[in-house]
Every structure is written in structure tokens, then in C-alpha cells.
Amino acid sequence: MINIANESLDMELALFQIGDMLCGLDTRHVQEINHNFKITPVHRAPEYVRGVINLRGEIVTVIDLHQKFSMPPSEDNDGIQVVFVRYENECIGLLVDNIHDVVSANHFDISTPPSNVDGISGAFINGVYRMEKELVIVLDLDELLKK
């Protein structure tokens, strides 16, 4: 899906925090960002599935990115922020800690992922975007949501 080399020079990245990492996701995949949801837990589901929520009648699976990145699961249930993405015709919610901003990124500033990024398996990273002060990990949605 995200194939930077073939895209136009700029892409919009939605930035959010997972643990102490700043991550970005191509906004074309993002449907909406919302919070204040009551998550219904689903037992016997894969560990990274936090539960399901009702998004205007659609049952949306919520995935805890902490679990995906082998971090301890986020405890705070009230201040939950969910990034809703479209993936293969299905809406999926990504549980994140904090929503930051949407930035326009020049693809020259996005470099291939270094192989030794902490706490995150390299497979989920599409690249690293160098902002002025920080580095943004550009996530690979395909890898992230692949079963």
C-alpha cells in the first residue's frame, strides 16, 4: 500500500504516540480519529485485539498497538484514543496513546528504517521521517494488520 517511491513527493502523515514512540500513518488510510469509546472485550481473541466497539453501527475491531510492539498494554481505559483506518474494506481501530498532528512530509525526508529500532519489530516500519526535532516512525499498515 504505502510505496513511497511511487507516490507524489509529499504525503500527509497523521502523528500519534505509542508509548514513547512517535508514529505516523499515511492519512489516506485514516478514516477518522475519535475517543471516548466503551470497548467490549473479546475473550479468546488474539492477544493484540483489545476488543470491539460500535462505530455508527459497524462493529470495529480495536487493536492495541502496544501489544503489537511488545510493550505492556495501555492501562488507561478512559482517555482512549482510537485511529480508525480502512484496511481491505474493513474498518479497524488502532489504540494509541496520544494524537499529535498531521504533517506534510516530503518523501526525501523519509528514509528506510534502521534495523535496530528499539521495541519495535522492523517489519511494521515503513520508514523513518526526520522532522526538525524528532523522528517519526512511519508505520506499515499492511504488515501491522496482516493476520
Binding site: K38, T40, V42, H43, R44, A45, P46, V49, G51, V52, I53, N54, G57, E58, I59, V60, T61, I63, E88, E90, C91, I92, L145, K147
Partner: peptide
């Protein structure tokens, strides 16, 4: 009755999900 997402298709114990009057989901 509403279908559940692909990540939950392997859970044998659920046949689907439904939205309750209060907007919460019941499996």
C-alpha cells in the same frame, strides 16, 4: 446481527456481534 472483523474470525465462540440499546457491543 453484525459480522465481526477479520481478526476475530478465528474465534470459534462467537457467531457475530450486535449493538445494544446503549450503543455498546454484545457478542
Amino acid at each position: 446481527v453484525k459480522p465481526v472483523g477479520t481478526h476475530l474470525r478465528d474465534c470459534e465462540c462467537y457467531a457475530g456481534a450486535s449493538v445494544q440499546g446503549d450503543g455498546k457491543v454484545a457478542l
